[in-house]
Design a protein around this nucleic acid. Structure first.
Lengths: 139, 139
DNA sequence: GTGTTTGCAAAGTGTTTGCAATTTA
DNA sequence: TAAATTGCAAACACTTTGCAAACAC
């Protein structure tokens, strides 16, 4: 593994998004685009930045998450009333959400199998289809 | 049509939920359980009560919506960050959400066709599966 | 009467915004 | 140095809470 990979990946993503590679955005991008599929809230990401000794204000984290989302680098998932999650996996897939731990995980398309699309009125188009399997812990 | 039907329906629902049929709850239940499938936010329901000249505080609307939900009379749908919808259709079904108008509609099960359930770890159980078809207006 | 419910206003949570100071190109 | 970005604090939208007054049984 090349130890410069995270840096290059982050820089590339930020520049492709037409954004300036500031210290803050680079730090956040390195945390987000580390190669794994991640699901973060603004608060989680802010704390992670803090933990890695990068001082970033929460407002900047929100800004960056939205800018990355607008650029197609992230996808916003609505599962929890009053809390937004951002997913680094932007390919088509579904989610499993644990209502106890509030943890969000990906499910591959073939784990669900949607056979039909609903009829949509002529003046609308399907933006996307969210499938959220809500689970609870037993006991 | 029996004009006493809405009253009896509301009373029955409230009493089955183990709640006292107060003026406020009766008014809200009549608005909600009118025989149609409804999707309301607290704010919408509050305004409807107001429009029908029943003075109810917003806090009471929130209380009632949660009490009805706990009693299984309503189902809460998370589609919009920072806004909760409540659905009077408690049978298994899916939703279509218009991101422009923020209107939420039901879709019957057979309009989608879920063929597979995902594997769940042994210490969890599926609570429910939410399918939300997100549409936008063309043009 | 006793316990429940209501309504208000205050507090809470997550998010957005205005703007001066800072940083980037 | 011109434009973009940051960070703070204030504002925001929605929801919940504490508690005295009102109500249901």
């Amino acid at each position: 593994m090349n130890r410069e990979r995270p840096y290059r990946q982050a820089l590339e993503n930020i520049q492709n998004a037409g954004l300036r590679p500031t210290r803050q955005r680079m730090a956040l991008a390195k945390l987000l685009f580390d190669g794994n599929d991640r699901h973060v809230t603004a608060e989680i990401l802010h704390r992670e930045a803090d933990d890695s000794n990068v001082k970033i204000s929460l407002a900047t984290v929100y800004n960056a998450l939205h800018q990355f989302t607008d650029a197609g680098l992230l996808r916003e998932i609505v599962v929890d009333p009053g809390r937004s999650y951002f997913d680094t996996n932007i390919s088509e897939h579904y989610h499993i959400f644990n209502e106890d731990s509030r943890q969000l995980l990906d499910i591959a398309l073939d784990q669900i199998g949607l056979t039909r699309l609903p009829a949509i009125s002529a003046d609308q188009e399907i933006n996307r289809i969210d499938v959220i399997v809500r689970v609870k812990n037993l006991i």
